[in-house]
Structures are given as C-alpha cells and as structure tokens.
Design a protein around this nucleic acid. Structure first.
Length: 175
DNA sequence: CAGAAGATCGGG
DNA sequence: CCGATCTTCTGC
C-alpha cells in the first residue's frame, strides 16, 4: 500500500465531491515524533452562505474567515463549551465550504475525533499541504462504498435540514 | 453588555 | 434525559 499526501488541488473542488472522496483516506497526525494514521469513515458537507446549517450563513466573521480562503486548510471551532470540531476547507477562495470529520476508525463522533487526534484551536488555518503535524494521505486503495444520510444536529436549518450531505462508509475494524 | 443557543458527549 | 461549559452572535 502506497501512501501519498493529498495536495491542495484535491480540496479545491466542490465540497459535495470532496466530502465523499475523503472516505477511506487517512488523517496523518504527528505528535512528538510519533506518526499515527486514522482512516476516515464519516464526513459531512457544509456548503456556502445559502446553506443555513453552514456557519458561513452568518457571513464572514473571525470564526468563519478560514472557510472563505482556498481549499486545503483546517477549520477548527469550539462548541458546547467542551468540544473541538475538525473540518477541512474546500473549494476556491471566496466560496465558504468545509467538510466536518465526523468519524475515523476508533473515534466515532466529531468530538471524539479531535480528542483522539489531539486537535485544538491552534490548528485553525493550518495548511494541509505543508503542515508537519497534520495532513491527509491516500492509501491507494479502491474507493469504498458510500452511504448518504441527513446531517446531524442541524434541525434549525430550514430547507437544508434534510439534505443528504452526510457520507458514511462501513468500518473495517473498530476497537 | 446580558442572554441564548450551539455541526456534542457521557453519565444516570 | 439532562447537565456540563464557554464561544459567538444578537438584541437592547
């Protein structure tokens, strides 16, 4: 199995393409010289200012700023007073989109993902193409099966509430 | 400047 | 089912 770091161009596409494509890819995390790889098994797409579930529906603020930048950056935010959510920015500059990493193997749930990977606010706007502590790799495996569903926890999002923008793939192993 | 809600989780 | 816990945005 070869491993290749995903470049900026992978992320500079529409979030509805990138979110399912990330399934089966590996988040690589380097902590104190130790490298771990975590297979992505669940993602969600947040797409533009018109998407009422997307934080960018409130416009460009200090918090949402990175979503307006080019794809390939990390968007992290803090919620419910205790959880960091890990997202990857997608699309071209000026188009606010992001993919929420909802689950990797061994960490099902966005709060658990950031806890396992030790991701906090200091990762805001980290560049996945050049970072030495977090990036994404393709394992060269065939594309996994993808199931879609509604996004979680966004009941307030009106017409966008029922969009099938959550992408899931069966886990091969879980501990 | 106060108040409320939130892309959640764990315990009872 | 509810409490924890704090950032961000909104309204007065």
């Amino acid at each position: 199995m070869y491993f290749m770091r995903l470049s900026t161009s992978f992320f500079e596409r529409d979030v509805l393409q990138v979110a399912p494509d990330l399934l089966g890819k590996y988040i690589v995390r380097q902590i104190d010289g130790e490298t771990t790889k975590h297979r992505i098994v669940e993602t969600e797409a947040y797409r533009g200012e018109e998407d009422l579930a997307c934080h960018a529906s409130k416009g460009r603020t200090p918090r949402t700023d990175v979503m307006y930048r080019r794809g390939g950056m990390v968007y992290v935010y803090f919620i419910y007073g205790m959880h960091y959510m890990l997202n990857f920015v997608t699309a071209a500059e000026g188009e606010p989109q992001a993919v929420l990493i909802r689950a990797v193997e061994n960490a099902v749930g966005p709060g658990r993902v950031s806890k396992l990977l030790q991701v906090d606010k200091s990762f805001y706007a980290e560049d996945l193409a050049s970072s030495t502590r977090i990036w994404v790799e393709d394992g060269g495996e065939p594309a996994p099966k993808v199931k879609t569903d509604k996004r979680v926890g966004i009941g307030y999002a009106g017409a966008w509430r029922d969009k099938p923008w959550r992408f899931i793939t069966p886990t091969l192993a879980r501990s």
